[in-house]
């Protein structure tokens, strides 16, 4: 699949950057002319992925989060959120709805929402090395556009 456009952002795992990451993803996705619902889904999925890095990957420290976004010729958007944090010991367990190690401040629904709001979700993790979450969403081409 041919890549049309790409951008890479690096930012610190501070919770104030959750809004920055969402707004950046929305601004980049805007060139695909998404509907408000599609844009909302992308922002929500990005928010979940970035929050996971802040809460779980770097629990007691501030680390770097890399967000890479790419647009392909089939009108799809791919977003990879990567950290160099503690890693996920059991990915299958982490993907289970309601499972969380974050206590009652967390709902355990992060991966479930990423999975249901995006078309594809891939999680790779090595303990002590970090985690990368890749999500893909195809934006529907609306009538009246070429």
């Amino acid at each position: 699949m041919k890549e049309i456009n790409a951008v890479t952002l690096k930012f610190l795992s501070r919770s104030a950057n959750e809004g920055f990451a969402r707004a950046s993803a929305a601004a980049f996705a805007a060139q695909l002319d998404p509907t408000l619902d599609e844009l909302g889904d992308i922002k929500t999925a990005v928010s979940e992925a970035v929050t996971n890095c802040i809460v779980h990957a770097y629990p007691d420290s501030i680390g770097v989060i890399t967000m890479k976004m790419r647009i392909f010729e089939d009108n799809s958007l791919e977003i990879t959120v990567k950290d160099s944090g503690v890693g996920i010991p059991d990915i299958e367990q982490a993907l289970t709805p309601l499972f969380t190690t974050g206590g009652d401040d967390r709902s355990g629904m992060g991966f479930t929402i990423m999975d249901s709001f995006m078309d594809k979700l891939k999680v790779k993790s090595v303990q002590g090395r970090g985690t990368s979450v890749t999500m893909r969403r195809r934006i529907s081409v609306r009538a009246g556009r070429k």
């Binding site: 928010s47 929050t51 009652d104 401040d105 967390r106 709902s107 629904m109 992060g110 929402i113």
Partner: peptide, 16 residues
Amino acid sequence: TFMDSSGIAVILKTMR
């Protein structure tokens, strides 16, 4: 103006 799964945790904790 925006809510993610953190809002779910807020609703559930408020309910409790």
